[in-house]
Deep mutational scan, measured.
Amino acid sequence: AVSDRLIGRKGVVMEAISPQNSALVKVDGETWRATSGTVLDVGEEVSVKAIEGVKLVVEKLE
């Protein structure tokens, strides 16, 4: 799938994300809905860990 190429890519949080709420991230110039197990604020850099349906699963870039 096209989205599989995004695993391992870096992105930027466009809307705050919490474990209860998905929000938008920008990866390679494209906007995607994403979820995370932690709270992520706007502007934080993230890494794509997986794809669940049409959502990216991201975590904060260390």
Rank of each mutant, 00 (worst) to 15 (best):
E62I: 12
T31M: 14
I7G: 02
V54Q: 14
V27G: 02
K26C: 15
I17W: 14
V25I: 10
V54A: 13
G8A: 02
V48A: 00
W32M: 04
V25L: 03
L61G: 05
E30T: 08
G43Y: 04
E15N: 06
Q20N: 13
E62G: 12
V2T: 10
V13L: 08
D28S: 05
V12W: 08
E52A: 09
E45A: 09
G8K: 03
A1N: 12
E62C: 12
S18P: 08
E15L: 10
K26M: 14
T31A: 07
V2G: 10
K55N: 14
A1W: 12
E62D: 12
L6D: 04
D28V: 02
A34M: 02
A34N: 03
V25R: 00
G43S: 03
L6R: 01
S22D: 15
D41W: 13
V25M: 00
E59C: 08
I7W: 03
L6N: 03
S3M: 14
K10C: 14
V57A: 03
E45M: 12
V25D: 01
T35A: 06
S3N: 09
S36H: 04
N21L: 09
A50L: 06
K26E: 11
D4C: 14
G29L: 04
E45H: 11
G11I: 00
N21S: 11
A1Q: 13
A23T: 07
A16W: 15
V42P: 07
S3V: 09
S22P: 09
L24G: 03
P19R: 07
S47T: 15
V54Y: 13
V27Y: 00
V12I: 12
R9W: 07
T38H: 11
I7R: 01
K60V: 06
E30C: 13
A34S: 04
D41S: 14
A34L: 01
A23N: 05
Q20D: 13
S22R: 03
V39F: 14
V27H: 03
V13R: 00
S18T: 12
S18A: 08
S36L: 05
V42C: 06
V12H: 06
I51G: 00
T35H: 06
V42K: 08
I51V: 11
K49C: 12
V2F: 11
R5S: 09
E44M: 13
S36Q: 01
V25T: 01
G53D: 05
K49A: 08
G43M: 03
S18N: 10
L61P: 05
L40R: 00
E45T: 11
K55Q: 14
T35P: 01
K60F: 03
Q20P: 14
R9D: 06
T31L: 15
K55T: 15
D41T: 14
L56E: 03
V27T: 01
V12D: 03
G8N: 06
E52S: 10
S47A: 10
L24A: 05
K26V: 12
K10D: 07
P19V: 09
V25W: 00
V46N: 01
D41I: 15
A23L: 15
S18F: 09
E45R: 09
V2E: 10
S3L: 14
Q20M: 11
E62M: 12
P19S: 12
I7E: 04
A1T: 10
N21F: 10
S18D: 09
V54T: 14
V12Y: 08
T38A: 10
E44K: 03
E62F: 11
V25Y: 00
I51S: 02
V42H: 03
S22I: 12
T35V: 13
M14A: 06
V2Q: 10
R9A: 10
A34Y: 06
K60C: 06
L61Q: 06
A23V: 14
G53Q: 03
A1H: 12
W32K: 01
L56R: 00
D41C: 15
T31E: 09
I17Y: 13
M14E: 05
K49M: 11
E45W: 15
G53T: 03
V13P: 00
S18M: 08
G53I: 02
V48N: 02
R5C: 13
K49L: 13
A23M: 15
E62P: 12
A50E: 06
V46I: 11
V42Y: 05
I7Y: 03
P19Q: 10
A50D: 07
E45Q: 10
G29E: 06
A16V: 15
E62N: 13
M14Q: 06
T31G: 04
G37M: 13
T35L: 09
K55G: 09
A23Y: 15
I7K: 04
V13N: 00
D4L: 10
E15R: 08
K26A: 09
A1Y: 11
G53K: 03
V13K: 00
I17E: 15
R33D: 09
V27N: 01
L61V: 11
V58Q: 01
E44F: 06
G53S: 03
L56P: 02
D4G: 08
L61C: 09
V42W: 04
D4E: 11
R9K: 14
E15I: 09
D4W: 08
K60N: 04
L40A: 03
V12N: 03
L40K: 00
R33T: 12
E59K: 05
T31N: 08
D28T: 01
N21W: 10
V48R: 00
S22C: 15
T35M: 09
V13I: 08
S36D: 05
P19T: 11
L6W: 05
G29M: 04
K10S: 07
E59I: 09
A23Q: 06
I7T: 04
S36A: 09
G8M: 00
V13Q: 00
E44G: 05
A50W: 07
A16F: 15
S18Q: 08
A23S: 07
E30V: 11
V57K: 05
G43K: 02
L24C: 09
E52I: 12
K55P: 02
R9E: 07
K49Y: 07
L24E: 04
S22K: 05
G8T: 01
A1K: 11
V54S: 14
K55H: 15
V2A: 11
D41P: 06
V12L: 07
E52H: 10
E52Q: 11
E59H: 06
S18H: 09
L6E: 04
L40M: 07
D41M: 15
N21Y: 11
S18R: 08
L24K: 06
G53L: 02
E62H: 12
G11R: 00
G37K: 13
A1C: 14
V39L: 11
G8C: 08
V58K: 00
V2N: 11
S18L: 08
W32P: 01
V54I: 11
I51Y: 05
S47Q: 14
E45I: 14
T35S: 08
Q20Y: 13
